[in-house]
Structure formats: C-alpha cells, structure tokens
C-alpha cells in the first residue's frame, strides 16, 4: 500500500492504495466519483478524461500513485458551487452534443482543456483537439458546434485565464480520509 493525497473537485483525500490501482478506479471505487467512466483498456476512448493540474489526462492510463499531491478536476467538479453549469456543459446541452452521454464526461473535460489552450479554435482545431475522445452516437458534429458555442460564451463572459477555463472549483476546505 502506498499513501497518497490528492485534491479532487476541491476536496482533499488521503488514502492508502495498492500501487496497481488506476487513477480512474481510485476515483470511481474509492472516492465515489462515478461521473468519470471507463470505456476501453488501451487509452483510446478518452471517456476517463479528467484535468490533472488543469491539463487533460486519461485517468485510466495513470496510476493513482502517479497523481499523488496533485489537483484533479472531474466532470462532477466543473459546475460552480451554486450548481451553475460550466459554459462547456451548458453548450453541450444547448447544442445537443450528447446522446447516450457515456463519452460526455470525458468529452467535456477534453473540450475544457482545449479551450484553455486555444480560446478560439477553428473547426479543424476542435476536431483534431478532440481526437483522443471517441463518441459512437453523435458523429461529433454537434460536439464541434458545442465547443464553438462554449468558446464564444467564455470569450465574451469571462477573462480567458487558465483558471477561468479549466481550474478546479476552489477548495471547500474539507478533508476526507478513507
């Protein structure tokens, strides 16, 4: 067992884990963060995408121990404390960018990351920027539309700092040890 500590969606967790535990399983099974899902075993589908220190990663391809000491944002931590949706979440809803919704948590996190780096991406930049996330339902077209819409709303409503785009909600000062 290895002792790790990480902040997930603003809450700090300290746990002993088996080194072989994948980050996504730690999130789902130990921390109850079941909003992040697993769709493959070869790092291809991106359903498990979370932000690690603000950048997108595939949480199925990291060990929980590799995420010791870092800040993680999952789809569950994206909305504001009052439940106000993140512009990317809202845009996915408005643009009908999801059907079954299984790819959606990962897709949203990947889009948040993309917009952090490129606040005004072209169609091609969006399509290539999301190449690590597979969706079997939508054909991607409405996802591309949603990312454009989110980009526009983020550019016009909030300063385009990394914090505004992708950083986790501020810590609520809770500590959880399991």
């Amino acid at each position: 067992m290895t002792r790790i500590s990480m902040t997930v969606d603003g809450v700090r967790y300290d746990d002993d884990v088996e080194p072989r535990t994948l980050l996504v399983h730690h999130l789902r099974n130990r921390l109850g963060k079941v909003g992040t899902v697993v769709g493959c075993d070869t790092s291809n589908c991106g359903s498990c995408t979370v932000l690690l220190s603000g950048r997108s990663v595939k949480s199925c391809s990291l060990l929980a121990v590799q995420a010791d000491g870092v800040d993680i944002t999952t789809v569950e931590g994206l909305a504001g404390r009052d439940g106000e949706l993140h512009p990317v979440q809202l845009a996915f809803h408005e643009s009908h960018a999801l059907q079954c919704g299984f790819c959606t948590p990962g897709m949203i996190m990947a889009a948040v990351d993309l917009l952090t780096e490129n606040p005004d991406p072209s169609d091609t930049e969006i399509r290539e920027g999301l190449e690590g996330n597979l969706c079997r339902c939508t054909g991607y077209q409405n996802i591309v539309r949603a990312v454009h819409a989110a980009a526009t709303s983020m550019r016009t409503s909030v300063p385009s700092t990394p914090e505004a785009a992708g950083a986790p909600a501020p810590s609520m000062g809770e500590e959880v040890t399991t």
Binding site: V34, L78, Q89, H93, T104, I108
Partner: peptide, 19 residues
Amino acid sequence: RRRKEDARLITGRTMWTDN
C-alpha cells in the same frame, strides 16, 4: 427542445450499471 436527460449526463450524475 433541449433534452431533459442531459442534466445528469453532463454533470456526471448518471446511473450506469457499473455505478
């Protein structure tokens, strides 16, 4: 109409069997 089911799907509050 925007979909009702989205609310849970975009916030990770979904009930997949594996959950």
